[in-house]
Design a protein around this nucleic acid. Structure first.
Lengths: 340, 340
DNA sequence: GCTGGCACCCTGTCCGTGCGAGTGCCAGCC
DNA sequence: GGCTGGCACTCGCACGGACAGGGTGCCAGC
């Protein structure tokens, strides 16, 4: 029905105008700025219906309309096309990310890049340990009973743990231990590391057995557990951008949630590399994130997801632009980490 | 002269009142809340002198007085005693920091602890590489021509670099290379690593010489250079605390400076473990930090400084309290890292 | 050198008014 | 039936004047 059709067109126009101006948008302005082919009065009628259906609302009587969360949702789902990035932006991505020296650097650059591209707060999850495999294990003795265990994963991540041995460790035993651990764990996914322990204990020479048990317990315990996921956050200065702060109340709860990390990480957990996920306002089901939207996507390949990244900003954000930026950056980072 | 004496007492009272209430403080309120033994009129005279000398100022005619940067400086230097921490706070420090599993964790906890203790933004510098020594070097081949170099320092820090070799690397050569590097560099301060290279090249067996040259060049180049210093920032949510934002304009430049890191790191460079350094407002000589004060101190021992930590907040902050907290935390972290 | 008193200044607040933006509704037109 | 122009109505906001309160500077007196 051409009828409904136009109504959606009106909604799209409202979202676009409101995102770019931050003013509630009225029927007259809409008619002027968009070729809707109808008069303001007609638009008013459509608006009344849209409001009835819960897609828009007026902050107070006799002000323009503002999209609701539901309105943004419809916009994202049906009314927007992902905006392709400009050539300059593509180039910026390459230039920014090339020349990173290590994982930390890659993620640091990524987060800054995303923040700059979208003018929002950017978050990047460290490649999840549980999805990676052991590339190398290193054991260094730092004191009589104390060993430093360094794990290098095939995603280039380096993890360290101190292991306290109940008995003095013979310096001779360290290279043996290293060899044993590597032959047992090299190439093994961290999630499956636990399964290898019995085998390892069987094959270990008797004089090392105690030590191997201690070390592999720590290894499995601390590294299989995915709680250690970390998050890199950047561009928080963008929160303070809108002169009249965009967020309803203060932005403090948001800053707190970002530092908390756990909230955001949980949301990141559901992400996959093939689709950009958008969570709008109340959909986040977390108090601090009411009034905020997340645009997230996984990076890595479909069979080998590494983690997630995205941006968080006010619900009043440029969804198509941010979705495009997030997706493009995720692809690039995925390639970068896959080949290293 | 009892005269000057009282005038300073007035300044101290002004600073204390203003810090706790955030209202410009007037002569009458001062006389009521502090036992200065004189009448408001007298205090007014003293205030006029203090203003003349530049220690206080009035935001506008007929409002109370507010300390200037210079006033805070005098307060910090001469009028305040470092407030000892409460037993509860000491316990909190221990409880918070114990049970950290690795360096990253220690620093993360530290920054959260400091932020919580002071209700300001906290910053902690990673232990500086250039001041540490090599504990162990690990070489892992990740592809034909690509080696991953992992450096473990005696401060427990782990650094990694990818080294691209011009020629295919023989898998056999890797253990040899590792042994060579370790015997050459183990125990050597990173700053002095460069000096060892000629020796190393002399003693290296001919077939490894090219490889050793490549690797040690990368090592020295990238690791001696202190630019890689990192900063952990926490408690930014505290910036948004003051309902009427404490900072003159917006807090955006400050957030930007904190993300920039380099600005703060430069200030951290001058820090040492024996004295708490306070930089007030304009003293920071950086635009973004005008209106902000830094309280910093080094951690580590005098002969072995590791890095710096501190808090940044509005010039209107509780200097004695923050100085005490910063010092106490630095001491504890210093011990913690020294023994690991 | 301190004190009380007084005139003065300034800001923040409260209220009333006018204006403008935007709406809803209605009658008329295509 | 749907669209349009017109019109009355409703608020929010900006402007401006009045007012109270807090704070100062100065002066004369002790």
């Amino acid at each position: 029905m051409a009828h409904d059709e136009r109504r959606l067109e009106v909604l799209r126009a409202i979202v676009q105008d409101f995102v770019s101006t931050n003013d509630p948008v009225g029927s007259k302005a809409l008619a002027e700025r968009h070729d809707l082919g109808v008069s303001p009065a007609t638009i008013r009628n459509d608006m009344a219906v849209l409001e009835e259906q819960g897609y828009i609302t007026q902050p107070h009587t006799s002000a323009g309309r503002v999209p609701t969360d539901k309105g943004y949702r419809l916009f994202v789902d049906r009314l927007s096309a992902v905006k392709p990035l400009s050539a300059a932006e593509r180039r910026a991505i390459e230039r920014f990310l090339d020349g990173a020296v290590d994982l930390h650097d890659v993620l640091g650059r990524t987060v800054r890049l995303l923040a700059q591209l979208t003018r929002q707060v950017a978050v990047v999850q460290y490649p999840t340990l549980s999805r990676s495999a052991v590339r190398h294990l290193e054991v260094v003795q730092v004191a009589g009973t104390r060993l430093l265990l360094v794990l290098i994963t095939d995603t280039g991540r380096v993890e360290q743990r101190v292991v306290e041995s109940p008995v003095e460790v013979d310096a001779q035993a360290v290279p043996e231990l290293r060899a044993l651990l590597n032959s047992a764990f090299a190439g093994v996914r961290l999630t499956e590391a636990g399964d290898k322990v019995p085998d390892l204990l069987d094959t270990a020479p008797p004089h090392l057995r105690g030590l191997v048990a201690t070390v592999s317990t720590t290894l499995v315990e601390t590294l299989v557990e995915p709680s250690e996921d970390r998050l890199v956050v950047g561009g928080t200065a963008n929160l303070a951008r809108g002169n009249a702060m965009e967020f309803s109340g203060t932005m403090r709860p948001l800053l707190e949630a970002l530092e908390e990390q756990v909230v955001v990480l949980r949301l990141m957990g559901e992400v996959d590399p093939s689709t950009v996920l958008v969570r709008i306002g109340e959909e986040n089901a977390h108090e601090a994130l009411t009034g905020a939207s997340l645009v997230t996507v996984g990076y890595g390949s479909a069979d080998r997801p590494l983690g997630g990244l995205g941006v968080v900003g006010p619900t009043r954000m440029d969804y198509p632009g941010n979705m495009a930026a997030v997706r493009a950056v995720a692809r690039y980072v995925g390639h970068l980490l896959a080949e290293s």
